[in-house]
């Protein structure tokens, strides 16, 4: 028998038992409860199902290459040599560029939209517009990236190469698409995540903290920098980690502007490849089992990486909101 549980009754003083032992419709009740249990377990189980399926199909490649796959530098389906390093490298570098750019912008937006620097009728539309970016399909942002952002970044890339070319970071001749372009596009895409969650975090900070700081003579920005940001730091870090998870897994926009070349170049102006990008480009054409296996292995690495990052983010954000409720 299904144990009868109390419904969401945090506001009720005593648990509410809706079971009717003598009802004629008892079978309906039982079926309904069973169905809800089944659906809930299946929904949660999808996560484990994904992990199992991807692992299962990656096994030929895991058996063939083992852990050496992680630092293999070559990727050739004709010679059946597969290594993940160029893709892991591209994924991490583009995500790092994206975070470096998006964090200051995202925090600025969060502060401007949660503080009273601007009147309410300006703040609300700004917050709405920034969140609108998140609703744009990534393939459309990629299309814009190819035809607008890459040509726009070209003069900057050329300037970086000419003046700072002696630094390996800018050591290669720019030709448009590349790690830098992909990173900038990713920054635009993850900005709403950082801005929206940080804004909620800042708005949830008890007003007493702000009043206390202001009454001690601190100015608005001294209050923000020394009181509000430290008080909200866990939530803001949660937002940044969540944005990182999104950047790691983002596929279409990156695929369209990164240049798709299997290489590990220290130069940000050079083209590269990411794990999602090679999955998007090669899965439809992969025929050999070992090729499919290697792609599955890459998918498994990406799944594991984003899983760790997202678990950290969700735990941080949950912890912060629970603490806010307790307070």
């Amino acid at each position: 028998m299904i144990p009868s549980r109390s419904p969401a009754s945090e506001t009720l003083s005593h648990p509410l038992d809706l079971t009717q032992p003598d009802s004629k419709t008892r079978w309906l009740e039982t079926a309904f409860v069973l169905l809800a249990w089944g659906c809930a377990l299946l929904s949660a189980g999808t996560l484990f199902w994904i992990a199992r399926v991807v692992y299962q199909d990656a096994r030929p490649a895991i058996a063939e290459f083992g852990l050496e796959f992680l630092w293999g530098r070559e990727w050739s389906s004709t010679r059946e040599v597969f290594g993940a390093l160029p893709f892991v490298y591209g994924t991490l570098v583009t995500s790092a560029i994206a975070l470096l750019l998006a964090v200051p912008f995202g925090l600025a937006v969060a502060i401007v939209t949660s503080e009273t620097i601007l009147p309410q009728w300006v703040r609300s539309p700004v917050a709405f517009l920034i969140e609108l970016i998140a609703a744009i399909p990534s393939v459309i942002i990629g299309l814009w990236g190819i035809f607008v952002l890459v040509p726009f970044l070209m003069p900057l890339q050329r300037w970086l190469h000419e003046t700072l070319g002696w630094i390996p970071l800018f050591g290669s001749e720019p030709f448009g698409p590349g790690l830098l372009a992909a990173g900038v596009l990713l920054a635009i895409m993850i900005l709403p995540t950082i801005a929206a969650i940080s804004r909620d975090v800042l708005l949830a900070i008890p007003p007493e903290l702000r009043s206390a700081s202001r009454s001690l003579g601190a100015t608005r920005w001294e209050t923000i920098v020394r009181t509000l940001l430290p008080a909200g730091s866990a939530g803001i870090i949660g937002a940044i980690v969540l944005a990182l998870g999104r950047a790691l897994g983002e596929t279409m926009a990156v695929t369209m502007v990164i240049g798709n070349a299997v290489r590990i170049s220290p130069s940000l102006l050079d083209s590269g490849y990411t794990i999602p990008a090679i999955l998007a480009n090669q899965f439809a054409e992969a025929l050999k089992p070992i090729h499919i296996g290697a792609l599955m292995y890459l998918a498994l690495i990406l799944f594991g990486l984003t899983l760790v990052v997202n678990v950290i983010a969700v735990v941080l954000v949950q912890w912060v909101s629970r603490r806010a409720i307790v307070r």
Binding site: L41, A280, L302, F303, T306
Partner: peptide
């Protein structure tokens, strides 16, 4: 279950495709 569903919502869409 809520935690698993939240994590599911952040699985990269390309992995869901795989």
């Amino acid at each position: 279950i809520r935690f698993a569903v939240k994590i599911l919502s952040s699985v990269p869409s390309i992995v869901v495709g795989v």
